[in-house]
Design a protein around this nucleic acid. Structure first.
Lengths: 342, 342
DNA sequence: GTGAAAGCGCTAACAA
DNA sequence: TTGTTAGCGCTTTCAC
């Protein structure tokens, strides 16, 4: 009366063993292709597996192996066309190496970041890829305490030592503005968004100012206007710029969404682009190739970036130590039709 | 010499018990807020938890509880602006109910769908939300065999009984084409994409033909052209339509991406929209509001849709039985500037 | 080549 | 109120 099998319940390695007149350990050897099992027995076991439609329980395996073969991925929101391709490449790459990815949208809210970090750790993910908003918080402490492998995307977090995979946002902004200057612009406005990583925006702002500076153009605060992160915000930010009555011959928008909204509004208001004003964005989202004029922009190649992020977290996971490196990718200038030709 | 504690290793419930001079079970009661523990002991245990920075291991809990508190989400690709908001709302909603989501991009490839289905089941997800490409395959067998809760998004799968959460794509296409007819169009072209759920496209095609039929317009095969799923495909499909030399006064594109590419190409070729040709899309992606003319389209409200998908899978998970219902959402016509006014 | 047994970290009878 | 024990499904010594 020790047999507690319930008809129709999910078969375990034990059921397979019983049916094949063998033992758990041997079945385990077979399902893990470890060899050292006689042809005969192996066949019997494989038959039993087929008959019972046995599937190994990875939760049990994970408990034993202390590895879930999953990574956590925290980003502000996958709805943002900048993150969507990144999420895609990360999931695909992780899968290629046998890892599942648990997706977490933090909405760029510190509390959610923290909560997700803790959750992922309790779920025993093998590592975390974290596109952080930039602020240090409790979640990081937990990561530190538990020694969870992590790679931070975007920017280094003050007070938190890890490997970072970043993109040179400063340089990206710099080359964008430099391009504007080269084609003769002097009154370059800066539209910036909010929700996405503060840090990136900050760097882009610095890059903007630095390019101005290096070209002896005096920074004019009147020319910088804050939007948020939707097409509509691009439109309203552009409105505001126009209403201010400042003189501007070109606009550098800190992301393409803003830039596109900006272009549409400019056109609505009767401006001709790039004749009257040149505009350049950042990110090269798909829509940039499709509006008219096609948007000049800066590309942070998400594919290499995302692939590198995965490879990096795997390296840390497998080596069991983080050597605190920084891998920075250089952006690329893409000139299309929204900036004047020389 | 039975004590195998290793300095610096991750603390378990056992370590907490030892430090608090108590037992595993009591600690378990405390961390699960089950009550029935004396104030004194509880405090000692909570102290020990703090000191050790103990975090419960959810893998162990999952093994015991036979529930991982995670769901699997399979979609073609999160890069597609139709799926990105869906993924976002699903993850957010699932999280609200205490479930994590494992994201899987199938690329609309049957083999990947199948592989992910099997993987998710082995990972013991509590349920699966599956935006299937439409074809029945081995993966479904495994779902069936293991009795895994699943809700299929999009369309019913022939030969596979489950609860479906769908959107009335037939009707959506119908009202789009009907709108075109109402504003006087007779030669309505149909551009259709590929990668995303075949089924949806199929239904949209049927809706297109049906609306034609109901209005005594003879279906003309010359007017249907196949694209794929990028802006560029919309452009090339439009090229093809023009090259065919058929007479067309309007275009119904089976998704906004195609529609936007189409509009841009039309404009490049000197057509005026909507004066020369009216175009209407499907999905209401963000870019639709931002191109000029603003795109008329059909909306399959991903937010209610996604929320319902999660609620449905949770209902099945908690009731432990699937009653095979179908919940179908009605689409909404959004008239903007790319279709002529009456 | 094979199986018995211990144990991964937790929960839940059951006993005290 | 508390602790002991068994067991979730698996892997891995260790004997045979």
């Amino acid at each position: 009366m020790k047999d507690k099998r319930v008809f129709n319940s999910i078969p375990t390695i034990n059921d397979v063993a019983k049916l094949a007149n063998s033992s758990k350990s041997t079945v385990s050897r077979v399902i893990n292709n470890q060899g050292g099992v006689s042809k005969d027995l192996e066949e019997k076991i494989r038959d039993a597996i087929d008959v019972l439609k046995f599937k190994p329980n990875k939760v049990a395996r994970a408990l034993k192996a202390r590895s879930t073969k999953s990574i956590g991925l925290i980003i502000p929101t996958v709805e943002n066309p900048v993150f969507a391709p990144l999420v895609k490449i990360i999931e695909t790459t992780a899968d290629k190496y046998g890892f599942s990815t648990i997706l977490c949208n933090s909405d760029g809210v510190v509390e959610k970041e923290s909560k997700y970090l803790e959750l992922l750790i309790e779920k025993q993910v093998d590592g975390i890829i974290f596109n952080a908003i930039g602020e240090f918080h409790k979640g990081f402490e937990i990561v530190k305490d538990t020694n969870t492998p992590i790679v931070v995307l975007g920017k280094k977090i003050e007070g938190f030592e890890t490997t970072n995979v970043t993109v040179n946002n400063f340089r990206g902004a710099y080359i964008a503005v430099e391009h504007l200057i080269k084609i003769g612009m002097r009154n370059i406005a800066f539209l910036f968004g909010k929700l996405e990583a503060n840090s990136a925006i900050f760097d882009r702002f610095e890059g903007y100012k630095s390019a101005l500076d290096d070209n002896n153009i005096i920074f004019n605060e009147e020319l910088v206007v804050r939007g948020k992160n939707s097409f509509e915000d691009g439109e309203s930010a552009t409105n505001e710029l126009i209403q201010r009555g400042v003189n501007f011959d070109s606009i550098f928008a800190s992301n393409d969404i803003l830039a596109i909204g900006c272009i549409e509004r400019l056109i609505d208001k009767g401006y001709s682009i790039p004749k009257d004003v040149s505009v350049i964005g950042y990110d090269d989202i798909p829509a940039s190739r499709v509006i008219r004029p096609k948007l000049s922009t800066v590309l942070n190649a998400p594919d290499v970036f995302g692939t590198e992020a995965v490879k990096t977290i795997l390296r840390i996971i497998y080596s069991k130590k983080d050597t605190y490196q920084e891998r920075m990718f250089e952006p690329e200038l893409i000139i299309r039709d929204s900036t004047r030709q020389l």
